[in-house]
């Protein structure tokens, strides 16, 4: 019971702080818009997907990827804010309190996941721009998957930040961990057409499964007119052409396992902290 209150306390603080910072709020709205409207639209006008059937343009393909990206960046930042907490002393207040370090890490991860999931809701509101229709049930499923992904990534951020002593290392994380995680996740190009060596790396990247799950869900309630008449669901078309590879159950299974491992790593990293 006390552990739950501690987790709730840490979560509440994370949440309050994240919605209070105006710059962070602006970034929360502006960043996805920038990627979707500028990068997405720009790329769509210049290229087509080799394997994509009619009706799937690049913007549609990239939309779930942008949700994945936004989850990744927001969550890793939320986890890495542990470094800021250390730098400005607040971490000490938490570490000397009579609560377990596991509860601290868990509260922090849940807080980061909450913020990232709210951002995903904002992005989903842009679905009509992309030409994707969503039902309430699908949105609910997407948010569950989004929460799971961002919980895992925030835990990763906490696990790394818990061991870091200074802010300098954060840029390294961004360059050598977050960017590769993103580029290799299948968010920007499909795994099926990537070179062999890259396919291996993409399969290792846990975010690949997150993006695959998001793509399956985002495409699941959109009907596409077939050239020969009749309609077909977008997700079925994408699956047939290898743009979606695994079943939702498999994807969610992989993300869950990764989330549990990373949550444990986050808790361990804080329990060694002074």
């Amino acid at each position: 019971m006390q552990a739950i209150q501690a987790i709730y306390t840490i979560w509440l603080r994370e949440f309050k702080v994240s919605i209070r910072e105006r710059s962070r709020l602006v970034a929360m709205f502006a960043q996805p818009l920038l990627y979707l409207l500028v990068v997405g639209k720009g790329l769509t006008s210049a290229m087509t997907l080799r394997t994509a059937p009619g009706g799937i343009d690049y913007l549609k393909f990239m939309f779930p990827g942008i949700i994945g990206m936004s989850l990744l960046f927001t969550s890793i930042f939320a986890g890495a804010s542990t470094i800021w907490d250390r730098e400005f002393g607040f971490l000490k207040e938490v570490l000397v309190a009579p609560v377990s370090r596991g509860a601290v890490a868990l509260g922090k991860s849940l807080g980061g996941a909450t913020t990232a999931t709210i951002q995903a809701i904002i992005l989903l509101a842009l679905a009509p721009v992309v030409g994707v229709s969503l039902t309430a049930a699908v949105v609910a499923k997407i948010l569950v998957v989004a929460f799971l992904i961002s919980f895992a990534v925030t835990s990763l951020g906490v696990a790394i930040a818990g061991r870091m002593k200074s802010m300098q290392g954060f840029q390294m994380i961004m360059n050598f961990l977050v960017m590769p995680l993103y580029f290799l996740s299948g968010a920007m190009f499909p795994l099926s057409t990537a070179p062999g060596w890259m396919k291996i790396l993409m399969r290792v990247d846990p975010l690949t499964y997150g993006v695959d799950a998001l793509r399956g869900l985002v495409f699941s309630s959109t009907l596409i007119q077939l050239p020969l008449g009749g309609t077909q669901r977008l997700s079925v078309l994408a699956r047939a052409t290898g743009l979606i590879r695994w079943s939702l159950g498999f994807d969610v299974g992989v993300i869950t396992v990764v989330a549990l491992v990373l949550a444990a790593a986050g808790a361990m990293s804080l329990s060694g902290a002074e």
């Binding site: 306390t9 000490k92 009579p98």
Partner: peptide
């Protein structure tokens, strides 16, 4: 504990900092 360096959350109000503490300390 009162540490040598500040350990407050600057982004919370004085009262919120205390509420946070009260909750952590049951």
């Amino acid at each position: 504990m009162v540490f040598q360096d500040p350990s407050l959350d600057n982004r919370l109000t004085a009262e919120e900092n205390l509420q946070f503490h009260a909750m952590l300390y049951h």
